[in-house]
């Protein structure tokens, strides 16, 4: 049972952690090397990683997606997709894909003369499944070593924690005030029933005992 419990908790932790890791904004310091647009198929399971812009038919099987390719500070490449999230999940309310693409174009640079920028994005890059993080914002920074404090994540995780603790406190209050008194009543009622059953049992035993005693007198046994 111990293993079942820990496995269960681990699975929940991984799912929630993965969900938060995918959804919360992250910052990369990169230099943009290219932006392009490419037709993408939408009819396999990786559909869940592409956005569903409002102005797009739900039955489309492929469409053009804009991409921003960049080199990270460690020299490794990273490719971002650039799509509207619109009013859908995750709630970034991003509608400025075209403007973002223009800003990224403006920041293009090469290795000899790098222009560093911080890209805010959510999502994962996975070469095997061809999934890309979605860029949400881009702004130029002084150099590759600037320190970025993730205020938004600190704020969101704090709020998330407060909400969880509030729900826990609400549940405890509800239990203390509404469930426990009822259970106590039930317990008391049950005790009463038991007492009465015991009393009735004694009474029956008494009657039966007296009857047996009377029968015994026929055989010359003394009554108890």
């Amino acid at each position: 049972m111990k293993y079942v419990k820990w496995t269960f908790l681990a699975v929940i932790l991984i799912v929630v952690g993965g969900f938060l890791h995918y959804t919360l904004p992250q910052h990369d310091i990169v230099r943009v090397v290219n932006t392009y647009q490419e037709r993408q198929d939408l009819n396999d399971w990786t559909r869940i990683f592409w956005s569903s812009p409002d102005d797009q038919s739900g039955t489309l099987t492929n469409r053009d997606v804009q991409f921003i390719s960049a080199i990270q500070t460690n020299g490794k490449p990273m490719v971002y997709r650039n799509e509207d999230t619109g009013w859908n999940w995750p709630p970034y309310f991003k509608f400025d894909t075209a403007s973002l693409q223009t800003e990224a174009d403006d920041l293009k640079s090469n290795a000899e003369n790098p222009k560093w920028a911080v890209i805010t994005h959510y999502g994962w890059r996975n070469e095997l499944f061809s999934i890309f993080p979605n860029a949400v914002g881009i702004k130029p920074v002084a150099g590759p070593d600037v320190r970025i404090i993730p205020w938004v994540n600190i704020f969101i995780l704090t709020v998330f924690l407060i909400v969880l603790l509030t729900i826990r406190a609400m549940w405890r209050q509800f239990k203390e005030r509404s469930i426990d008194p009822v259970l106590e009543d039930v317990g008391e009622a049950w005790d009463e029933v038991e007492d009465r059953a015991d009393a009735a049992g004694d009474e029956v035993r008494g009657l039966w005992g007296r009857f047996k005693g009377w029968l015994g007198t026929w055989q010359g046994k003394p009554r108890k």
């Binding site: 970034y92 309310f93 991003k94 509608f95 400025d96």
Partner: peptide, 10 residues
């Protein structure tokens, strides 16, 4: 939601 729309897009 209003603040987010402003910050992300404008």
């Amino acid at each position: 939601v209003g603040v987010l729309i402003y910050l992300v897009n404008y």
